[in-house]
Design a protein around this nucleic acid. Structure first.
Lengths: 394, 394
DNA sequence: CCTAATTTGCTCTTGGCTAGAACATAATGG
DNA sequence: CCATTATGTTCTAGCCAAGAGCAAATTAGG
């Protein structure tokens, strides 16, 4: 949205601003609120709302009256309006959901996938997506897919512990003429946080998602920084603690080795078995909470590494807030003091008077699906996307 | 520039786009180029150029003919047009220059300052700025000041090796009604690189400026990421190599300790004397070039640390290019192979096929002044700035 | 040296957009 | 039950950029 330059583009630009604002507020904002906040004249707002309604993009419904004056209406999603298909592909299963404008999610299908060859996994997923698309019809305007690994130009670059390497995921998942957008799961968790979670309204926020790996995103005005080729946010692969350990990513000393599920297993002397790491790590955390000294020591070590590295990133990037998801939430909650101490010690002195708060996600496990749906809607809420919708189904 | 929303704002918005484009191309672009690139109608361009000329913001001058057809003109700075005052304050002296739209610099005054108390240094500088402003008259539209330390909300937060702490620099330098904008020197060097140097046109670039300290900026679409309070880019204060050394910044293991002038001195066993570090470090590099084995070893060690840390940042941020300035340029040039090896080894394997190039600055020592002038012009090239100019000197 | 081709600038008309005013409407509060 | 209040609706005025048609200024080619 670079802004309109001709009077002809103005209309579309303002239509988009209004629809985006309604979407960003969860489809719960009233027309009068939106008019005020966007600085529109009431007459203009009337025209725009009529246009959106005619185009089956939004619909007004009565709003509860809260004050004197003529009642206004809530500008929410249209019952026949656009849908985004959101897909969360994990190491051990996937979930497909729909989202309407405003963000309301509805899970459609959820499945484990026991095998690892990427073609099989993605092939099965592609078939499921096709079924869903056939079922849902032309309302679907885009597909957003979250994948737990770095994505470059629509290809999965490298997931060493699954032996996925240079997989053309976007091509395999191609869904007819529909745009299939692929994003890293940690980046999308951050995107969700910026749009509907604890980073909402932050000019600059840092999100860290811990799982097997440690990734995240820097959110600038609600948008993740993508990097030159889409692989920004691999914060886990900076040697933030100088461990000297060899990492699957190809270099040494990676921070992720000391913070993720793998780190918990290593610290307790457990073995990493493919496909079971997440459950095993969770078990260690439970044991630590129950007082098992070995587990508690491992948790302590990992939480300290987590806090130190987080401080390093805050030193470099100066975010307003830091949010955590995945395993990070539990690490932070169960070893709050250790984390806080390490975080404090790692900050530059001048940052210690008002350090950026570190907060758990407010979105639970939905974060990644929400991020995937936002990815799809971001492509739709553009002049091109809207024009295609208006031109398409007459 | 969020874009126009009313037909009334359109004119100002397009005026600004045109002026910004002319400025960004160094005041050397022709009207026909600008018209084509901005997608304007020829008639619209004619009106806008007339407006800019009337407002003494720009002026056309004949262009050398290069092809058939009616000749066009170059849209350059107006002889009575706006000026930015750019100030480069260093540990040991300062420089004041003017810049006109298009970016042409003219140094006005340059001085060493032997003493360290911030009030004295800044007081002297403030007086010099006032003299220059009186001399230059109302053409000056803003003052941009580069300072070698972290800046938060207009205050110098902390320069440990100069014992500057929480200095209200913007207040001390206040120049009448004129906006005085303060920026970190490394950030401004990066800004200059993004606008007129080796990062020009990059969607995302990383700049690293090495001096006593190591700082930099992440440049997104030509703008540095400022962080929540203006102190982003302190990449030197991440523990990228796990040295365990105590840093003046208040934490430990900072990368800057192993890369800057201080690192060279420590590696050769020399003592750090206040105010002479820069010259001493330069001498070590010269000795290394001349074959002194101790100096060469120190250079090698520092270059390796530099390359490793740069790779870590590339892993995390995925920039399109990396540029270097300050001491960084010489380190990279004199120990190219060591740097390249360490850089390569530190990259995630999947980044090694097409690693972002690491390039020296193309702006020499002017980079910081250019950055400071861009800082001032950025505040001017806004609807508010332009309106004030048009309303002001009638 | 002259003419055709080419590119750009200038002027005017046209269509489209938003602001804002005036009025209508639908609720609340006393 | 009526004054008050906030919002929606309708219409007009003012402004803007696109685009067409024409004028102008140069080069290429013979």
């Amino acid at each position: 949205m670079t802004g309109a330059t001709t009077s002809g583009e103005l209309r579309l630009h303002n239509l988009l601003r209004l629809l985006r604002a309604a979407h960003d507020r969860g489809g719960e904002a009233t027309r009068s609120e939106l008019t005020r906040d966007l600085g529109l004249a009431r007459g203009t707002a009337a025209v725009l709302v009529a246009d959106l309604t005619d185009a089956r993009l939004a619909q007004e419904r009565p709003a509860p009256q809260r004050a004197r004056g003529r009642p206004t209406a809530i500008l929410g999603p249209h019952p026949d309006g656009p849908l985004a298909l959101a897909v969360d592909l994990r190491e051990d299963g996937w979930t497909i959901a729909t989202a309407e404008l405003g963000g309301a999610l509805a899970v459609r299908e959820e499945r484990p996938h026991p095998v690892y060859p990427p073609e099989a996994v993605l092939g099965g997923l592609a078939a499921a997506i096709d079924r869903q698309l056939a079922d849902l019809g032309p309302r679907v305007v885009g597909v957003g897919v979250a994948i737990p690994g770095p994505i470059r130009d629509g290809r999965v670059v490298d997931i060493p512990h699954l032996s996925w390497r240079d997989v053309p995921a976007a091509d395999i998942l191609r869904a007819g003429a529909l745009p299939v957008l692929i994003g890293n799961d940690a980046t999308l968790a951050g995107l969700a946080e910026a749009r509907r979670g604890a980073l909402h309204g932050t000019a600059i926020g840092l999100h860290l998602h811990v799982d097997f790996d440690l990734g995240g995103a820097l959110l600038v005005d609600g948008d993740p920084l993508h990097g030159a080729r889409g692989t920004a946010g691999e914060f886990g692969h900076m040697p933030l603690l100088g461990s000297g350990l060899r990492c699957d990513c190809g270099t040494t000393g990676c921070w992720a080795l000391q913070v993720g599920a793998t780190a918990l297993l290593r610290a307790t002397g457990a073995r990493l078995e493919p496909g079971r790491g997440r459950a095993d790590a969770a078990r260690i955390l439970t044991r630590a909470a129950d007082g098992d000294p070995g587990a508690a020591a491992a948790l302590d070590e990992v939480a300290r590494a987590f806090g130190t590295g987080t401080a390093a990133l805050v030193n470099a990037l100066d975010p307003q807030r830091v949010t955590l998801s995945g395993l990070g939430t539990r690490l932070h909650a169960q070893a709050a003091e250790t984390f806080a101490d390490a975080y404090h010690d790692g900050l530059m002195a001048f940052r210690r008077d008002q350090p950026p708060p570190v907060l758990p996600t407010t979105l639970g496990t939905d974060a990644i699906l929400i991020g995937a749906s936002e990815l799809a809607f971001d492509a739709f809420l553009t002049p091109e996307g809207l024009t295609a919708w208006t031109a398409g189904p007459t």
